[in-house]
Amino acid sequence: MQTSEKQNERIAKMTFASVYPHYLTKVEKKGRTKEELHQVITWLTGFNDQDINRLINEKSTFKEFFSQATIHPNAHMIKGLICGYRVEEIENPLTQQLRYLDKLVDELAKGKKMEKILREP
């Protein structure tokens, strides 16, 4: 699925620090924890807690954030709709990676078991 160039540019310039509090609020409202959110972020990106905090403090854009990430080899198993797009059909790699993260946070907030979220056999 094609996303617009304007949308892709907007995503690239957005900062992780501006979105992170929304992720945290979303999962905590549903009874999940900051630790579980970090576990999901770590699974997808390879970042540890120190990395996550550094990226927030540096106000890293999502372009910078994902350029430093080591995307999990099973990330391609993340499927479904997020923001009206099928994540597996998004062609722009950066936009797809952000939507992977959005989808994982969504699944966490919806109460899915961690093994399912982390695509463990």
Rank of each mutant, 00 (worst) to 15 (best):
E9A: 13
R10Y: 12
A12P: 14
A12K: 12
K13C: 08
T15M: 11
T15G: 04
A17S: 15
A17G: 05
A17V: 10
V19Y: 09
P21Q: 13
H22C: 06
Y23N: 10
Y23L: 08
L24Q: 12
T25L: 14
K26P: 04
V27K: 08
E28M: 14
E28H: 04
K29N: 15
K30N: 14
G31P: 15
R32L: 10
T33S: 15
K34H: 11
E36P: 10
L37Y: 01
L37F: 01
H38P: 06
Q39T: 11
I41E: 10
I41M: 14
W43Y: 13
W43V: 06
T45G: 01
F47E: 04
Q50G: 02
D51I: 09
N53T: 09
R54A: 09
N57M: 07
N57H: 06
E58F: 03
E58N: 10
K59H: 13
T61D: 06
F62C: 03
K63E: 15
K63Y: 09
K63C: 04
F65R: 00
S67A: 14
T70M: 07
T70Y: 01
A75Q: 04
H76Q: 04
M77L: 15
I78E: 03
I78H: 00
K79L: 05
G80V: 02
Y85E: 08
V87F: 00
E91N: 08
E91L: 10
E91Y: 01
E91S: 07
P93K: 05
P93E: 11
P93G: 04
L94E: 10
T95L: 05
L98Q: 04
Y100Q: 03
Y100S: 01
L104I: 07
L104F: 01
V105L: 03
V105Y: 00
D106L: 13
D106N: 07
E107W: 04
L108A: 05
A109C: 12
K110N: 13
G111D: 12
E115V: 08
K116R: 09
K116M: 12
L118H: 02
E120N: 11
P121T: 03
P121E: 08
